[in-house]
Amino acid sequence: MRALFPGSFDPVTPGHQDVLRRASLLFDEVVVCVMFNANKTGRFPVTERLERLRAAADGLGNVTVDSHTGGLLVDYCRGAGIDVVVRGVRDAKDLDYEMPMARMNHELAGVETFFLPADPALAHVSSSLVTAMGRHAGSDK
């Protein structure tokens, strides 16, 4: 079975890497895909995000990396023959955000959503936090 692990991956975090690794153990093939969210402004160029995802997928023989610039996630799934979307969730807030999209993807195209709970050691990590830490890494204290 083929699965899609979509996201903005802006930037790729240890949590993303963990979900990708675990999904690769559960599905025959995983496509990790940089998707574009009109409500988000990208901090890193898509080419850099794709490079980082390829590095994260190194050694995972059943993972491919892609990007999708237009249309809905279900459009990508239909075109690629994918029936399952993998989403990592850190807490109830993430699940509340993801559930309406999961229901809509199922109603629109029969695409199921598989939720992977975050590793507790990584549940506090978000792309926003990683970006903020990177901005302040070289600053004076």
Rank of each mutant, 00 (worst) to 15 (best):
A3R: 01
L4C: 05
F5K: 01
P6I: 03
P6T: 06
P6Q: 14
G7H: 03
G7M: 07
S8R: 15
S8T: 14
F9A: 02
D10H: 03
P11S: 14
T13S: 09
P14M: 09
P14S: 11
G15W: 02
G15S: 11
Q17C: 15
Q17I: 10
Q17H: 05
V19D: 00
V19M: 06
A23Y: 02
S24P: 04
F27I: 05
E29R: 13
V30A: 02
V31S: 00
V32R: 00
C33E: 02
V34A: 03
M35K: 11
M35G: 04
M35S: 06
N37F: 10
N37P: 04
A38S: 05
A38H: 11
N39L: 10
K40E: 12
K40T: 07
T41P: 03
R43G: 04
R43K: 15
F44H: 07
F44R: 12
F44N: 06
P45K: 05
V46N: 01
V46I: 07
V46G: 03
T47Y: 11
T47I: 13
E48V: 12
L50G: 00
R52T: 01
R52S: 07
R52W: 07
L53M: 14
L53K: 02
A56C: 11
A56T: 05
D58E: 07
G59P: 05
G59I: 14
L60H: 08
G61D: 13
T64W: 00
V65D: 00
D66T: 09
S67V: 03
H68L: 06
T69H: 06
T69S: 06
G71T: 05
L72D: 02
L72M: 13
L73T: 07
D75R: 03
Y76K: 01
G79V: 01
G79H: 13
G79E: 10
A80P: 00
A80N: 12
A80C: 14
G81D: 10
I82D: 00
I82Q: 01
I82T: 02
I82S: 01
D83P: 00
D83A: 14
V84C: 08
R87T: 06
V89Y: 06
R90N: 07
R90D: 02
R90L: 04
K93E: 12
D94R: 06
L95T: 03
D96M: 13
Y97P: 01
Y97R: 08
M101P: 00
R103T: 09
M104Q: 15
E107K: 10
L108N: 02
L108T: 02
A109L: 13
A109G: 15
G110H: 13
G110K: 11
E112Q: 15
E112M: 13
T113Y: 15
T113W: 03
F115M: 11
F115P: 01
F115N: 04
L116E: 03
P117D: 13
P117M: 15
D119W: 10
D119P: 05
P120V: 14
A121G: 11
L122R: 03
L122E: 03
V125Q: 08
V130N: 04
V130W: 09
T131I: 10
T131Y: 08
G134E: 12
G134H: 13
R135W: 08
R135K: 13
R135A: 12
R135I: 09
R135E: 09
R135L: 15
H136S: 12
G138M: 05
S139W: 10
D140W: 13
D140L: 10
D140V: 14
K141D: 09
